[in-house]
Write a protein that binds this DNA or RNA. Sequence first.
DNA 1: GGAAAATTACGTAGTTTTACGTAGATGATT
DNA 2: AATCATCTACGTAAAACTACGTAATTTTCC
Lengths: 224, 224
Amino acid sequence: MCQKPIQVLVVDDHQIIIDGMKSILQDEETVQFAGGANTMQEALDFIDQHQVDVIIMDISMPGHSGIEITRMIKEKYPDVKVLALTMHDEIDIIADMIDAGASGYLLKKANMNEVLDALQTVARGQRYLGSKVQDILMDDFSQRRSTRQNREYESQLLTPREKEILQLMLREFSNDKIAEKLFISIRTVETHRRNIFTKTNTKNVVGLIKYAMKQGLTQNESQA
Amino acid sequence: MCQKPIQVLVVDDHQIIIDGMKSILQDEETVQFAGGANTMQEALDFIDQHQVDVIIMDISMPGHSGIEITRMIKEKYPDVKVLALTMHDEIDIIADMIDAGASGYLLKKANMNEVLDALQTVARGQRYLGSKVQDILMDDFSQRRSTRQNREYESQLLTPREKEILQLMLREFSNDKIAEKLFISIRTVETHRRNIFTKTNTKNVVGLIKYAMKQGLTQNESQA
DNA sequence: GGAAAATTACGTAGTTTTACGTAGATGATT
DNA sequence: AATCATCTACGTAAAACTACGTAATTTTCC
């Protein structure tokens, strides 16, 4: 789906973080470290002159906060995705950041795998929240009310039949077993499958499972 | 890996549960409702005369508790797996049940998918704990000490290299991409892959992911 | 009654994965 | 020196999946 590497800009006032990210991202073919910026101005200049897909954004920065920078960037370049990577775990900051337009939020204790995962996820237009962050949000979910957020993948994305097929895929059925069980042709299953992949913006079972988990389609709340 | 359906015996003093399980299991090819039993004696008799792979066991039963029954059954028929399905969420009961030899523990609020998943998991010799149950156990983990349990999949099951490949699989790399990244032949990757499947008792990526999640090899604590 | 969405399905061709067996190289352990 | 675990890799054949395009039925909804 996305063959060319994701261009990543790292915005952080600590150069060490930028350097670290650079070296981490370096031996990945799927992502490419495009550059780093220590200030808002640097960041804006950079985006102006380079192709950037995702920005890894720190929040606590002198001068303008990551939140402001994000808001500004999303105004000028709505297509650029912002992934917050910070140590702040306060609900308000997270909320503000998301409100400002961030597509993902990770705590700095996240490991490389998570970062890479998050990069890919936000790059393809979905949101990504680290598991810790999810917990924090959940806890706060009831009182806080929503801010007209873009709800890119809300739920009725998949048709009932597609969900059914997804369920079976998650239960390790192969295409022909699914066909057998549902009394349809394997060709049909393949078509559904293809549509599921397309709709969910995934390209293989692994991605799909991650999607399903994110949607809570795995164990709980399915149409058992 | 297991072609013939898993023979399931349901032991519960409430007939309605047995009937319910029967109808649920009926339209599954992978499992087969073999029979039901309301008492220990019935259960023992049944096992004596039929092929049984997994027993779904309630705990609160008049006369002998599910724990006793489990202990007795595991003594006589160690190969028969017991899956506790109950509403008891007290740590002591769970622990006793596991101690008695149960391979899995599910709360009755679990849905069909979870039950089916659990059945397959225990049938192939692994343990299965519902997510709630895991939480409960976790909370209590530090003080309670172990009872020489069979530790079928303890951790050092996979070699470092295998873990590395697993990581990449989880990150949606195809075999040839893995080969490329690690500078080895795709044949080698295939071999590793095969060994991983064998060792983890899984047969496809979906199963493997579930395994990985259970082991916490996905996001957190990997060797990033 | 007609448009739109959902479900069904085929063809063709290519790619990827699985299944099994085998086996050399290396390093650690005893 | 021998054993064991790990990592490496090939061959062969079959099974499964992927990619794209197309399109006939139903169903659903306005």
